[in-house]
């Protein structure tokens, strides 16, 4: 059924597509991270989410600190080029603001889980994890024997998020989505999900081809919301630069529970005028 993506507002899209208890993937590998959508999830007070993302980055540090997450499925949880994600660490080390269950993989494992999800297969195979302590801690990593060669490989189950959210440079009037630059695992994450939301910098009449582009046909996407700067402090190649100072400044804000709470109340919740 080739139903086109519907164009809507960010608030309406999050309200209708993201529910308490959902498995939610916000993807974007350093580039095109859908921060505005993450912030809207916090504003709408979603709870008990299973957050899926290769590199949790600041966006999940914020969601975890705000108490939205019950579980995190990930492969690298740091502040790139800066250091720790302190809200993530506080949740794991001190159960604050609530306990956070972890499911931990390598990048190769996570990428292949999305590929299996996009492919409609139950699991993916890779040559990985051998000799590490990860399989002992992550029950979702199992050995599998190749029926042709007898080689023992790693199997990881498909990821099928209830909803995947990404940010892209632009869409056309029909809702076809175009992104370029570092496109990470976004195509796989959208195709693996039951529902999807793409925030875009702009909607244009027609998509001009760009080298290295990834295009998602409109009928592969559930909803599109126009959110200029929606990747900030990450970036959208051709539209904005990564705000490295924000990543550095986040270290001090996130280290301290009170400073984080102040940020949450004053920077995130207050500007839209939402009551609590």
């Amino acid at each position: 059924m080739a139903e086109p993506a519907r164009v809507t507002t960010l608030a309406e899209a999050v309200a209708s597509l993201v529910h308490d208890g959902d498995v939610v993937a916000l993807e974007g590998f350093t580039h095109l991270i859908p921060f505005a959508a993450g912030h809207e999830i916090i504003r709408q007070g979603r709870r008990d989410l299973t957050l899926v993302r290769m590199t949790p980055d600041l966006v999940y540090d914020q969601l975890i600190g705000a108490g939205c997450a019950a579980k995190l499925v990930f492969s690298w949880g740091g502040n790139p080029g800066v250091g720790s994600l302190h809200r993530f660490r506080d949740a794991v080390e001190h159960n604050w603001p609530r306990p956070l269950e972890l499911e931990e993989h390598s990048h190769a494992g996570m990428a292949n889980r999305y590929v299996a999800g996009a492919s409609g297969l139950p699991f993916a195979i890779l040559r990985g994890y051998s000799g590490t302590d990860l399989p002992e801690r992550t029950p979702n990593i199992k050995p599998v024997t190749c029926p042709f060669t007898g080689e023992v490989l790693a199997a990881v189950p498909a990821l099928q998020p209830d909803v995947t959210i990404i940010h892209a440079q632009r869409a056309d009037a029909d809702g076809n989505v175009q992104m370029w630059g570092i496109t990470g695992v976004q195509k796989e994450a959208v195709l693996a999900a039951r529902r999807s939301l793409v925030t875009v910098e702009e909607i244009v009449d027609a998509l001009t081809p760009v080298p290295g582009q990834v295009v998602l046909p409109t009928w592969a996407v559930t909803a599109i919301a126009v959110v200029p700067g929606g990747a900030h402090p990450s970036y959208a190649q051709g539209y904005s630069e990564r705000d490295n100072d924000y990543y550095v400044a986040w270290d001090a804000i996130s280290r301290d529970r009170e400073a984080f709470d102040r940020w949450l109340q004053e920077q995130l919740l207050a500007p839209v005028g939402g009551a609590g």
């Binding site: 990930f74 690298w76 080390e93 931990e104 390598s106």
Partner: peptide
């Protein structure tokens, strides 16, 4: 309940 939670594996194992 680690003393210090580090970022994790990333691409390193493979």
């Amino acid at each position: 309940r680690p003393r210090v939670r580090l970022p994790g594996a990333g691409g390193a194992p493979e």
